[in-house]
């Protein structure tokens, strides 16, 4: 197991190096940052000064290593709007985003997985069909439409809940509901098909044939196997904890990371955008690593030769 975890850590490290390289290349490829930021008609001296300040006058490979150094020491520059350290600017928004995404994520799991399992166990029943209709709806309707629909019903018509801002916990309900529903629908769909696949396997028949009652067959033999593909989807959701709220935060004017990203892109605040992109990438890599380790825990085949007893 240790060997397995180490190899996954190594893989994650490689991914991070590639992500940082990618961000570096993309930023260089999107044009000369100096002219992009200062404007094409800026005086040449100002551009030169900017280049010097950002190290853009150095050879590319030195810039590359300098960039790495900056990333790993957490010095990603200052925001062009208010001159504050971008890491601080981004980090102060994180709790706000997490206060939406974490509850939404919990709803996804608490609703999506049981719904999917139940639908698979009662295939073609009324409940199964309801779950599938909900799942397809949640999958097909974009979150901003759902968000606006919820606002229309609960804020405009019924007047129960606020439609924007961050004044009280009531403001969080609609965004959480929006994200909770979409994710739960997705998860229900995947759990259902994973479960159906597993229920058709030969070892399920073996478990029944040895006299296990059906609930025990499902609980002991089906769920853990169905968890294997489901974990992949949960991993995606985990990776989206920080990034996934861009649209919903914008609709509900929720001052989180997603909204900051949208505003910063609009303002060409490159340092902030860069910091957010890197943070999102890192959370994705981290989520992937968590998924890999979970795989190893759930599926002994993943650990492969880590333990010696082969043949």
């Amino acid at each position: 197991m240790l060997h397995y975890v180490l190899s996954r850590l190594l893989r994650a490290a490689v991914s991070i190096v590639m992500v940082v390289t990618f961000v570096f290349v993309v930023l260089r490829m999107s044009g000369d940052p100096a002219t992009v930021i200062m404007g094409a008609d800026a005086p040449p001296e100002a551009i030169d000064a900017f280049r010097k300040a950002w190290g853009l006058d150095q050879p590319v490979w030195i810039q590359y290593f300098a960039f790495f150094e900056a990333v790993f020491s957490g010095e990603l520059g200052r925001s062009m709007r208010d001159g504050r350290d971008v890491v601080a600017v981004v980090l102060e928004r994180v709790p706000s985003t997490l206060s939406l995404t974490v509850p939404a994520f919990l709803i996804n799991i608490a609703v999506g997985i049981p719904a999917g399992v139940h639908a698979a166990l009662h295939r073609n029943s009324l409940i199964d069909r309801c779950v599938m209709v909900m799942a397809v709806t949640g999958f097909a309707v974009p979150s901003f439409i759902l968000a606006m629909l919820l606002v229309l019903i609960f804020s405009v018509n019924l007047g129960w809940l606020p439609s924007a801002g961050q004044d009280s916990w009531l403001n969080a309900i609609l965004p959480i509901a929006t994200m909770g529903f979409g994710g739960a629908a997705l998860l229900a769909r995947f759990t259902r098909s994973a479960m159906l696949e597993v229920l058709g396997q030969s070892y399920i028949r073996t478990a029944s044939a040895k006299g296990l009652p059906w609930p025990a067959v499902v609980w002991r033999h089906a769920l853990q196997n169905a968890a294997i593909p489901t974990i992949t989807i949960i991993g995606f959701m985990l990776g989206g904890l920080v990034a996934g709220a861009v649209v919903v935060e914008s609709v509900f004017s929720w001052p989180g990371v997603g909204r900051l990203l949208v505003v910063s892109v609009a303002n060409r605040d490159l340092a902030v955008v860069q910091a957010i992109v890197l943070m999102i990438a890192m959370t994705m890599v981290a989520a992937n690593m968590v998924v890999d380790v979970l795989y190893g825990l759930v599926d002994p085949r993943m650990q492969g030769q880590a333990r010696g007893a082969r043949r």
């Binding site: 030969s202 028949r205 478990a207 853990q224 759930v298 599926d299």
Partner: peptide, 12 residues
């Protein structure tokens, strides 16, 4: 059953 590898639960 026929295929012993598939007839045993892979995760137990």
């Amino acid at each position: 059953f026929q295929d012993p590898a598939a007839s045993l639960n892979p995760v137990h």
